[in-house]
Design a protein around this nucleic acid. Structure first.
Length: 573
RNA sequence: CGGGGCGUAGCGCAGUUUGGUAGCGCACCACACUGGGGGUGUGGUGGUCACAGGUUCAAAUCCUGUCGUCCCGACCA
């Protein structure tokens, strides 16, 4: 490709509404252009990168025995009604009607469509296991699209769905996909971690996420400093502290804490550390499990934060987690939030593992503007159950017993699930087993955010000049920058010759043949992140040399014109 | 959905307080000089000032409404 015939589209200034570095650089490098909130056009440079990511994924999926298919973006409502997700999915599912007033949606995912396909196509256990994938556009009407293609409404996903005769087969394919994902991210050349994960609204049991570690990530990942334990903070278990015996129970005191509602405020006023204060949160109960009471209390140590996923998983707690309103609380215990404690509450109390280990603690007195000092469990306060309710903190012991937890931000670029029979049962996707009996097929599903990977790689690979692509997905592998080609016939001939030679070798080469000053060309090639640069100018050509520089190096190397092609070939191997 | 900010040329912004008919930098076009790190000069192109009402002799500017967009929160594969 020649820059003189190519839409480079680079910007010198950073568009004002781009927050994170990958979004800024993708706009500046002319990779994407915004059409509307959460909708982006991929420009030539961006599309080149995207296609390379897709190709790596495709090759590795094929290698693992998966079959590529392509399903429609528009899906009929009937299928979603069959799986009951038409009701369960919120406004994130974009619903549309056709001219006959029939209902459809834009697919945010394709479990229903693939399950429908497979129940038509597969009838015998002999056809199993089978794994199908596609690289396809998805649409999710995100509440708040942000960070460019990192969280857009329309995006490209590689999604795969496997079908099995039994759980053992599912687990085997799940492991194969786990390994395949590792190979994919290794080949792309990104720093990632597989982590234990929650299954969320997709459902199912076992699940792993693949995260690219970057400070702009939207998830917190907890991992051990001494083992390979890693989990999304939603899932990371806060293990129970060793029981400390209560010695010297002090006398309970009631103190005034007017207008002090937060743990921080109370801690300051009473000169107590936050871990000596208990916080009591009142949430609604699940009516099926607790028909007798509408509220339930969750008690945590003041320095800990509630893990809503863990709380929602408790049978007694309503899902989605719903905090009690001030008026609900006032009606039940005659005080406002900020002064609540686990003291003779008229409903059940679930205490966090760490909270039950506190002695002589501070807690609300269930009277507005008053707290208790030196409260103790049993003597003064009561709980009905103990559970793991909190988010782990940096420095907590690792749940696998090895080392301490560190917490870093991660960008979720892959997610694999064992779905079990959720969809195959709901949609009657069955096969005959070797006994001639009709059984539902356990399923797995495996997603990779293709467009998101592009942004995630940039988050890990940039400097003050622009992007530093790994060679695997760079839009161009080599840039030839000609110096004063309009004046120097010898430089022009050399640049053209090298360009033709590299092209003939199937190397992605960009010849910068614009009539621009060298500084402009260097800046553009660095901004779009071409890994290798050859500078062809009369000056070095006088000694038969061209200049070579890798994007991540600071200095040029003089290379004999006759050797540069060989050098490039070597580097690209 | 709640809170906040912003909509003026392709991009970044000033002008709005105090109403007088639109400007700067970059980009773009032409020419000249320049020619190894976003160069200089001269001359240009490009704007229903988000939209709709209203006030006024006069509205980018004041008032009302609408839309878009971004940030924080809630929410979420």
């Amino acid at each position: 490709m020649r820059t003189s015939q190519y839409l480079l589209g680079t910007l010198r200034e950073t568009p004002a509404d781009a927050e994170i570095i990958s979004h800024q650089l993708m706009l500046r490098a002319g990779m994407i252009s915004k059409l509307a909130s959460g909708l982006y056009t991929w420009l030539p440079t961006g599309l080149r990168v995207l296609r390379k990511v897709e190709q790596i994924i495709r090759e590795e999926m094929n290698q693992s025995g998966a079959m590529e298919v392509m399903m429609p973006v528009v899906q009929p409502a009937e299928l979603w009604q069959e799986s009951e997700r038409w009701q369960q999915y919120g406004p994130e599912l974009l619903r549309i009607k056709d001219r006959h007033q029939r209902e459809f949606c834009l697919g945010p995912t394709h479990e229903e469509v693939i399950t429908d396909l497979i129940r038509q196509q597969v009838h015998s256990y002999k056809q199993l296991p089978a794994n199908f994938y596609q690289i396809q556009t998805k649409f999710r009407d995100e509440i708040r699209p942000r960070f460019g293609v990192m969280r857009s409404r329309e995006f490209i996903m590689k999604d795969a769905y496997s079908f099995h005769i039994d759980e053992a087969s599912l687990q085997q394919t799940y492991q194969t996909m786990f390994d395949t994902y590792c190979r994919i991210f290794d080949r792309i050349g990104v720093d990632y971690r597989p982590v234990d994960a929650d299954t969320g609204s997709i459902g199912g049991s076992t699940s792993h996420e693949f995260h690219v570690l970057a400070s702009s990530g939207e998830d917190d990942i907890a991992f051990s400093d001494q083992s390979n334990y890693a989990a999304n903070i939603e899932m990371a278990e806060a293990i129970a502290p060793a029981k400390t015996a209560a010695s010297n129970l002090s006398d309970l005191q009631l103190v005034d804490t007017p207008n002090q509602h937060s743990i921080e405020e109370v801690a300051q006023l009473l000169k107590q550390s936050e871990d000596q204060i208990l916080k009591t949160l009142i949430v609604e109960t699940d009516p099926e499990h607790s028909p007798d009471a509408s509220l339930i209390a969750l008690v945590l140590r003041g320095d800990h934060t509630l893990n809503e996923i863990k709380a929602e998983k408790l049978a007694a707690v309503k899902s989605p987690l719903t905090f009690a309103s001030d008026s609900q609380i006032q009606a039940a215990i005659e005080c406002k939030p900020g002064s609540i404690g686990p003291i003779k509450l008229p409903f059940k109390v679930i205490a966090d593992r760490s909270a039950v280990n506190c002695h002589n603690f501070v807690c609300g007195a269930n009277q507005d503007g008053k707290h208790l000092i030196n409260a103790n469990w049993e003597r003064d306060a009561q709980y009905d159950d103990v559970a793991d309710l909190r988010n782990v903190k940096e420095g907590d012991p690792s749940p696998d017993g090895q080392g301490k937890l560190q917490i870093k931000r991660g960008i979720e670029v892959g997610h694999i699930f064992q779905l079990g029979n959720k969809y195959s049962e709901a949609m009657s996707a069955t096969v005959l087993n070797d006994k001639g009996k009709s059984v539902p097929m356990p399923m797995g599903c495996y997603g990779i955010g293709v467009t998101r990977i592009v942004a995630a790689v940039i988050e890990q690979n940039y400097d003050d000049k622009g992007i530093l692509w790994p060679i695997s997905i760079a839009p161009f592998q080599v840039a030839i920058v000609g110096i004063n080609l309009h004046k120097s016939e010898i430089a022009k001939q050399c640049a053209e010759k090298l360009y033709e030679q590299l092209k003939a070798l199937q190397i992605d080469v960009l010849l910068d043949d614009r009539k621009e000053r060298p500084g402009v060309k260097f800046a553009d090639m660095e901004l779009i992140g071409v890994p290798y640069r050859i500078v062809v100018g009369e000056k070095s050509l006088a000694d038969g040399n061209v200049e070579f520089r890798a994007r991540n190096e600071a200095d040029n190397q003089l290379i004999a014109e006759s050797e540069i092609i060989g050098l490039i070939q070597n580097k690209l191997q």
